Simulated assay, not measured.
Amino acid sequence: MDAWDIEFHDLAVGYGTTAVLSGITATLPAGKVSVILGGSGCGKSTLLRHIIGLARPISGQIRIGGRDLFRLGHRDFRRIRRRMGVLFQDGALLGALTLAQNVTLPLSEHVRLPRRLLREAALRVLRMVGLDSFADYYPNQLSGGMRKRAGLARAIIAEPRILLCDEPTSGLDPITAARMDDLLLSLHAEYADMTLVVVSHDLASLRRIADYVLVLRDGGAVFAGTLAELEASGDAYLRQFLRREAGAEELDLRQPPDPEVRAALEKWLRS
């Protein structure tokens, strides 16, 4: 089975006719780990939604495995989407279902299999992420990191050719985040033909897992290349981002409160 590139050709995406990103031309290489990097609100998750096919581009193309995703017929479009697995930011587990039931949703919703086989499939992928002993727990009984790992198990149960992860380390402590990075790398090694795309602003994770990096800023792409090329870049913004420097933003902190507001607060505090 050949791995699939994800190509953007003069792509503009957004909401309605309002573009969040435009002029994006880059290729996320087949069978590699690509990280879409950028500051909060720069359009990373918006781009991910369009790769998944949840929204149509304003203009331009998204080509997956050489095929223009949004020019495909309905049947072929659905076939490509079936070969995608998605890890959402919070795991997106259903609270009324156990972990085993959650991770087998892609199977139980679309194919007919005996309960025994579904159970075995659930335990197999939960074992891969270290959660097989929690198969009958509910999401609210688990930590945030465990819920993310369960979401990852669900994303890979159908053995996708493309795995898309939205902020897999956000909200995790450094040790748990490092374990998530290692888990993603182990899964990628297990499924060598899988193209892995990770949306992140976690610099430690970037340096641990990335083969290729797409950096978004100010409504466009300011860098597309390998991790080594990114680290060697002399671009001032990229250097600032990678060094985690705040920059020279001027803030006026001398903003006295309105006297009436202050008087009301003081009266309330004394009561």
Rank of each mutant, 00 (worst) to 15 (best):
Leu196Tyr: 05
Tyr15Phe: 06
Ala232Gln: 03
Thr25Arg: 04
Thr98Glu: 00
Gln101Phe: 09
Arg270Met: 08
Arg116Pro: 04
Gly220His: 11
Cys42Lys: 07
Ser143Asp: 13
Asn102Cys: 07
Asp68Val: 10
Asp68Gly: 10
Leu94His: 07
Ala155Lys: 07
Val35Tyr: 12
Pro174Tyr: 03
Ala121Asp: 09
Lys267Phe: 05
Met194Lys: 02
Leu69Pro: 00
Pro139Gln: 00
Ala264Phe: 00
Leu37Phe: 04
Arg119Phe: 00
Asp136Thr: 01
Ser34Ile: 04
Trp268Asn: 05
Gly85Ala: 11
Gly219Tyr: 08
Glu229Tyr: 09
Leu187Thr: 10
Asp202Glu: 08
Ser143His: 10
Phe223Asn: 00
Arg243Glu: 15
Thr169Pro: 01
Leu47Gly: 14
Leu196Lys: 00
Arg208Glu: 15
Glu260Arg: 14
Leu185Ala: 04
Glu167Val: 06
Asp182Trp: 11
His50Ser: 10
Leu183Gly: 03
Ala122Met: 00
Ser205Lys: 04
Val198Asn: 00
Ile24His: 05
Pro57Asn: 10
Leu131Val: 13
Met194Glu: 08
Val20Gly: 05
Pro106Val: 14
Leu203Phe: 04
Ala12Lys: 01
Leu242Lys: 15
Gly39Trp: 00
Tyr191Lys: 10
Ala236Trp: 02
Asp181Cys: 12
Val13Asn: 06
Leu107Gln: 14
Leu48Arg: 07
Gly225Tyr: 09
Ile175Trp: 00
Arg270Ser: 13
Leu107Ser: 13
His110Tyr: 10
Ser133Lys: 03
Gly220Trp: 01
Gly16Ser: 13
Gln101Thr: 13
Pro114His: 13
Ala26Arg: 02
Met84Lys: 07
Ala100Ser: 10
Val35Asn: 01
Ala204Gly: 03
Leu203Asn: 05
